[in-house]
Design a protein around this nucleic acid. Sequence first.
DNA 1: GCCTAGGTCCCGTCC
DNA 2: GGACGGGGCCTAGGC
Lengths: 245, 245
Amino acid sequence: MDIGEFSAMAESAVAAREVIIAFVHCQITYSGRAEAFLGRGDRVLLIKADSTVIIHQPEGSNPINYMRPGSAVTFEKVDQHVMMHVMNSGDKSFLDVEIFRVYDVASRKLEDGQKQDLAGSERDMSDHIRDNPTLIGNDFHPISREEQTDVGFIDVFGHDKQGHFVVVECKRITASLMAVDQLRRYVERVKQIKGTQVVTGVLAAPSITPNARDMLESYGFRYAHVQPPMRLERWHRDQKKIFEY
Amino acid sequence: MDIGEFSAMAESAVAAREVIIAFVHCQITYSGRAEAFLGRGDRVLLIKADSTVIIHQPEGSNPINYMRPGSAVTFEKVDQHVMMHVMNSGDKSFLDVEIFRVYDVASRKLEDGQKQDLAGSERDMSDHIRDNPTLIGNDFHPISREEQTDVGFIDVFGHDKQGHFVVVECKRITASLMAVDQLRRYVERVKQIKGTQVVTGVLAAPSITPNARDMLESYGFRYAHVQPPMRLERWHRDQKKIFEY
DNA sequence: GCCTAGGTCCCGTCC
DNA sequence: GGACGGGGCCTAGGC
């Protein structure tokens, strides 16, 4: 596609809050929360309705460059190529994309009001524990969930038969040193607030790293093996056989 | 575009390791590390050369759905629409994208061997401190950087005039409670390893949250105001005036 | 392979 | 608006 034609088309598409996708040959400079330069290559350019700009290389999950929503996108024709300037006054950053060739491009007004329905988060796990307290222990009695303190929020807070407080930190995946740090921070704060030295710390997760387990036990805390509530039956039912061939 | 045509084209593009971009009207189901459903709407579909699949809604920085590199991508024609199946045997996840309409599509072999050159990371900051130790204190003497321990790695490790050990944790942005947790973990480990109770903890960052500062001081640690090494002069020189209008 | 932590993290939520 | 922590986090680096 002619580079001047692209410039005009992109400019009006941005103004109309259309989404733009393109294959381009370009070179990129970023300055803001860091500084970056990427030499010439073929990439995917995506400009969204809210002026989010995303650039992908041909491989990998993450964009190689991006600008956050609400940026100012302008195009400048220079010789035989187009310079796309993206500026964000909020975080004082800018992205310059020097576009040498446009292989393919499309722009369109996209309509999508849907929100994703997602299950299996850590919040679901703390719900699950509140509703099934024996997962933590036979005498665990939940009092609150997502309890706010000035040092962060406690996933599940409760007490045992003797009335001693219990702090539960949940991780939906393998618990690490950082999870133990969090648990320790909450337990210490509860001790201060409640004026007691007897507070139980429980780390609930499907697994835990060896170092985290050592550290956990050195603080006198306990690990509870808990699976996050997910419905993987469908995978096992529908897909397992496929991979067995 | 005709939906059957799309199916055939996409299938051969995937086989040829081409990159595909498209505007589609679709509905999405995901099952794997979580479970998710997204009703019908217009989205951007991106399939990369390594079979990474990324789907964007018209707004926001992050993809609403994705599958990691190395997935198996297949297309199935069902009535008047196409079902795209993406399966990843590594993490036992799958993504089903039911495509009802294809507004625009392009596929192409993209060539890009470039790697990004990036400055301003936390690693650059610890380099900067090692080379300018007075940023931490007048009598700070660095010994090592990115020192590995069994409880994580210490950004900058050194000693003072009296030979007491100093542990420095760097953050390129506002330091939070988690940064204090890390610092405390490293200081405690150094005390154990070196068999001393006199270890100084320093949190180096451009700013720190009030709660983090309280917690830091309660452990007897110190905050050092350090800017991450970035070259923002260009921003201030080139862009500042524009926003002043 | 696991473990650890950074990220131009982004994002929601609650104060 | 700041603070805090989750994320289907992803990715890099060390062991």
